[in-house]
């Protein structure tokens, strides 16, 4: 009994020591993550606007911004645009990243070189990527447009056409971020043990069957993680939209993030913009939770 008590005491002491060691880091973490988030939430309950500082700590109608959001057509439309952009760009990135990873999965020097080249878009600063695509999408100076015209397939400006502007942004975003999926999938592919593949090959499995029944189940958790990361990041889309279309033509490329930016930085409605940001935050949490619940990333179920 005494022995058990002393063990418990030692365990408890160890736990307390760990906690004491961790507490400074936890305090800093709380300070730099939770406090700004709380400030955002509190601001969203006020009518704060820069031209009227008296609204800073006014809480007489805390839900006014959220009520207005429900009737704000531009905000609701921005959510639809956001979902379209996020879904299309994430799917394209997964497809392109996976396809290229499968093609580049090998041990030759050429493949190694190619892998490095394909990583370039991801390491470029976002504003540089936006400028590259601004040139690509400006018919007068674009090598893309000129090339197509020389081939007899002239294409009108993609970013000035409301039917193509969002897809043009999605394509540029895919170009920048498919290397992320490619890199993750490549790493995962190189971890696949040779035995099951050899066994299946001996049994006469085709390349498609190998991919479908061995490779895909193995890399599926990585694909889910990539999708989740890219999905969360896609909600932060900004430089491409700012430089390429400024949310237009009209509002066809105005995503929620960009609309929040306009409310805060062009119109100075900080309370309203904070409410938009809060709704986005909740939306991203919900989406992440949903993706996690789908269970695709669960190793044990295989």
């Amino acid at each position: 009994m005494a022995h058990a008590l002393s063990a418990d005491g030692w365990q408890g002491e160890r736990r307390r020591a760990f906690l004491a060691g961790l507490s400074p880091a936890l305090a800093v973490l709380l300070l730099i993550t939770l406090v700004p988030a709380a400030a955002l939430l509190v601001t969203s309950f006020t009518p704060l606007q820069l031209t009227d500082p008296s609204g800073t700590f006014r809480f007489d109608d805390p839900l006014v911004n959220y009520r207005q959001l429900l009737h704000d057509g531009r905000f609701l439309a921005s959510i639809a645009v956001q979902l379209k952009l996020s879904a299309s760009s994430v799917l394209l990135q997964l497809a392109a990243g996976l396809g290229l990873a499968l093609l580049l999965n090998g041990k030759s020097r050429v493949l190694e070189g190619a892998r490095t080249v394909f990583l370039i878009p991801m390491v470029l600063p976002p504003i540089v990527v936006a400028l590259i695509w601004k040139i690509m999408y400006t018919p007068d100076v674009s090598p893309l447009h000129r090339g197509l015209e020389a081939l007899g397939w002239p294409v009108r400006s993609l970013i000035a056409n409301p039917d193509t502007a969002l897809w043009a942004i999605s394509l540029a975003d895919t170009w920048q971020w498919f290397p992320f999926t490619m890199l993750m999938v490549l790493a995962s592919l190189q971890m696949i043990p040779d035995d099951p593949i050899e066994a299946a090959t001996l049994e006469g499995a085709s390349r498609w069957q190998l991919f479908r029944h061995i490779v895909l189940p193995y890399i599926r958790p990585v694909l889910v993680v990539c999708a989740l990361f890219r999905l969360i990041d896609s909600f932060k889309a900004f430089p491409l939209i700012y430089v390429l279309t400024n949310g237009g033509p009209g509002s066809v490329t105005e995503v929620t993030n960009f609309y929040g930016f306009i409310q805060a930085f062009n119109f100075s409605y900080w309370g309203y913009a904070s409410a938009i940001a809060t709704v986005m935050l909740v939306g991203v949490f919900l989406l992440s939770w949903l993706v996690g619940r789908l269970g695709w990333s669960d190793h044990d179920k295989r």
Binding site: P162, N246, G248, P249, G250, I262, N266, F267
Partner: peptide, 23 residues
């Protein structure tokens, strides 16, 4: 006037919407 930036945006959008055939 202090609220012109808000109207300025609406004018930008209106001309874009007409010129791009959306409205």
């Amino acid at each position: 006037v202090s609220v012109y930036p808000q109207v300025d945006q609406q004018l930008n959008k209106a001309i874009e919407l007409i010129a791009s055939g959306q409205l």
